[in-house]
Amino acid sequence: MRYLQDVVTLRYAADKCVGCGRCTEVCPQAVFALQGRKAVVTDLDACIECGACRRNCAAGAISVDAGVGCAAAFINGILRFGDADKGTCDCGDSSSDCCGG
């Protein structure tokens, strides 16, 4: 299953990469692959912006506006605070249940 194209904020600076391979280890979408001593982005649109690669890249080669793709959380934020980013999925709140996994 694929989501929207050309929207993800993942940016990768190959010149900073030290080839440790952490990004290939943490990505649940196989966005990165290791080719020789460098990581390469093989499937940018598959990125779900979870931020695992950025957080685990000791070389600081990756940037991404990380978050959870949860409409319930954004709508909650808009309604309560007027700002989508301030919303949480509020798993304790019976009105929005995005944490079923």
């Binding site: 299953m1 694929r2 989501y3 929207l4 929207v7 993800v8 904020t9 649940p28 979408q29 598959a46 990125c47 779900i48 912006e49 506006d65 990380a66 978050g67 959870v68 793709g69 949860c70 409409a71 319930a72 959380a73 954004f74 709508i75 808009i78 989508a84 999925c89 929005s96 995005c98 944490c99 079923g100 996994g101």
Partner: peptide, 24 residues
């Protein structure tokens, strides 16, 4: 259906925001 995005394994924050901007 849009509310199901948070339950899935393959949606992104930017993608869901784009949907909301158009849909709301």
């Amino acid at each position: 259906a849009l509310n199901f995005t948070g339950c899935t394994t393959f949606t992104s924050k930017s993608g869901v925001k784009r949907e909301l901007r158009l849909a709301l």
